[in-house]
């Protein structure tokens, strides 16, 4: 299976990555190579094998429902470029 330039553009858009036009064909062929590797793996007969959701053969540990975090807004907002009234300010988004 090969990836076309249009698909690279779509994937890049979904991931909000800026890709220059001249980079498109390069990415297309690199991604196609990865897909070929996947195709190759697809040839292995896995009918008897349980699908795996995680490489570690363990199950999720659960946390007791207790609040232990306290308010650290001041230090957490030190990184933010713009805050007001305790809110993070971002470029205007409207649906």
């Amino acid at each position: 299976m090969s990836i076309r330039s249009e698909e690279v553009m779509k994937i890049a858009h979904l991931a909000r990555l800026g890709i220059k036009d001249e980079q498109l064909s390069g990415y297309a062929s690199e991604l196609s190579n990865i897909m070929q590797l996947v195709e190759q793996m697809n040839q292995v007969d896995t009918t008897e094998i349980e699908p795996m959701a995680h490489p570690l053969d363990q199950s999720q540990r659960l946390r007791l429902d207790v609040v232990t975090e306290n308010n650290q807004r001041e230090s957490l907002q030190k990184n933010a470029p713009n805050v007001e009234d305790g809110l993070f300010l971002v470029p205007r988004v409207i649906d």
Binding site: V66, V67, E69, N71, R73, L76, L87
Partner: peptide, 29 residues
């Protein structure tokens, strides 16, 4: 109805001042 969030130990209480119950996990740091 839980005291803390699904993946962090920050409070879920309604009506707190903005971002006072958003910890590093909730912020995706």
């Amino acid at each position: 109805a839980t005291n803390s969030k699904i993946f962090s130990a920050a409070s879920t209480a309604y009506g707190a001042a903005p971002n006072t119950q958003a910890c590093a996990v909730d912020l995706g740091l």
